[in-house]
Every structure is written in C-alpha cells, then in structure tokens.
Simulated scan of single mutants.
Amino acid sequence: MIGYIRVSDSQKADGESQREAIKAYAAKRGIQISDWIEEHVSATKTELRERKLSSLITSRQSIIVSDITRLGRQKVMELVGAIGQIASYGELHLAYSDTIINSENVDNAEIIFTVIGQSFASAVEAQKRSERAKAGHAKRKAKGLSSGRQKGQKVKSKLDEHTAFILNMLDSDKSKAEVLRKLSDKGVQVSRSRFYSWLEDRGLHNKKAEFQADMFTE
C-alpha cells in the first residue's frame, strides 16, 4: 500500500498533516504502508500524466490519500478515470472520510458522486478565495492604496487545507464540536471561536445549500 501526498504550494505543514492523517487511518485499519510518494504540484495547472500519481497508477498499487482532492479538484472526468483505474486493480483509500473504493463499489453512484462532490466543493471554495483576493487587490489599486493586507482582510488559515474534510463532516450532519474533535485527532488544533469565525469568513456556515446551488449553475 502506497501513501500518496500532494501539496499544491510550498506549505510543508499541509504535507505533514496529510501524512499524519494517512498514518492514523492505516494504523486504525491495520494497513502496512510500504512506501510514500509526495509531490508539490497544482492539480489545476498540470495534467495527470505529468504527475507522479500517473506512474503510481501505472504500477498498479493500492493507494491511500488523505482525501479525494489530492488526486484532483476540477477536472472531473480525469478524476473519475483515475478512480476507475485504481479500483480496476486494487483499492483507493480516503483517510478523512474513512472510505474504500474498489471494484465492488466503484460503480456505486452515491459513493462516487459524494467523493466527486468533495473535490468540487473544495475547488469552488479555492476559486472564491482567489476571486475575493483579486477583487480586493484591484479595489485597493484603484484607490491608490497599498496592496498589502488591510484591516479585516481574510488571511490564509491552516483550516483552508482541510476544507474538503470539514465539508464532508458537516454534510454528514456531524456537529461542529465533533468536527473540532476530529481535527484535533489529526493534529489540527484550533479554538471553537476561531473555527466558527473561519466558517463565517469562508461562507461555509450555510455551505451545503450554497454548494448545491453552485453545482447547478456551473
């Protein structure tokens, strides 16, 4: 079993959080991880064939990832194809959602749409953050102000890298207190007030309805 980690930027902490989540999952299920593959690339700016993941799939080995967004976020058919390839010869384990996809359930629409939904939701939130940042920059530039961070401007949070996991938990009707406990188990320490502020700032306090609306307006 191979542990696969993908970090889209230079934030090494995200790679470590993925690794710890995979280790905890493997220990829980009694799985032996024979090797680790880690790469620092953006899934939205590269093709699957350009990443180490492609060679890993070709080697026909079962894979554990922290969540489905590590395989991809926006290229839906590419993501579905990767899932199908892995399931055709072995297993794809998703640590955060405690899900196994293999030949027995890869054609289960509910399972596949759920994991694809996680990827889509994460991509939507990332795009919105980018658009807000660009709009803020343009507004400040138009006023002749510094492009540095202004008072009240949203800053990157360590929770951003766990958006898919948090969305999945909340969509499963888990309480915010349960989500905080699960994050703590994964080594992500954050206060209740900071977590609630993060949900509010990212517009995720009512994210399920927003996510469903986005899906049908794309």
Rank of each mutant, 00 (worst) to 15 (best):
H40N: 13
K28T: 11
Q153I: 01
I112G: 03
R70N: 08
L71Y: 11
I33G: 05
N108M: 04
T69Q: 07
K182W: 06
A123R: 03
N206Y: 06
S130P: 01
Q212T: 09
I111L: 13
K182A: 06
S66E: 08
R129H: 00
L94W: 12
G84E: 12
Q212H: 06
A126G: 03
K75T: 02
I166D: 14
D173S: 02
L180D: 11
K182D: 05
Q85P: 11
K143P: 01
D14T: 12
I101W: 14
E104V: 06
I2V: 13
E47C: 05
S119F: 01
D201P: 02
S184Y: 12
I101A: 11
A87C: 15
Y89T: 06
Q74R: 05
M215R: 12
G136K: 03
G81S: 14
K174R: 07
Q11C: 11
Q127D: 06
R181C: 06
H162S: 14
K208L: 05
V7Y: 06
G136C: 04
K75S: 09
M77H: 05
S197Y: 09
L167P: 01
R192I: 01
I166P: 12
S184T: 15
K139N: 04
E39L: 03
D160L: 09
Q11L: 14
G15P: 06
I63M: 02
R49T: 07
D173C: 00
R29S: 03
K45N: 05
S97W: 09
L159K: 07
R192D: 14
M169F: 13
V65T: 15
I86D: 08
S130G: 05
S157M: 13
I63L: 02
Q32I: 11
N108D: 14
M169P: 03
A26F: 15
Q127R: 05
S10T: 12
A126N: 07
V155Y: 13
A142F: 02
I116R: 07
K143I: 01
S193V: 06
S42T: 10
T163L: 07
K154F: 09
E110D: 11
G117A: 04
E200R: 15
E91Y: 10
K134P: 08
Q74Y: 01
S197W: 04
Y96F: 14
A109Q: 10
E78L: 07
G90Y: 08
G187V: 09
I33R: 09
S197H: 10
G72W: 04
E38R: 08
E161S: 15
A109W: 02
M169L: 15
Y89V: 04
S146E: 10
T114E: 14
I31Y: 13
A43K: 11
R149V: 11
R60C: 12
S130V: 09
L94M: 10
K45I: 02
R6A: 14
S146H: 08
S8F: 07
G148T: 04
E20Q: 12
Q189L: 15
G15F: 14
D185P: 00
S103N: 12
N105E: 04
S54P: 00
V188H: 06
I101T: 14
F211I: 01
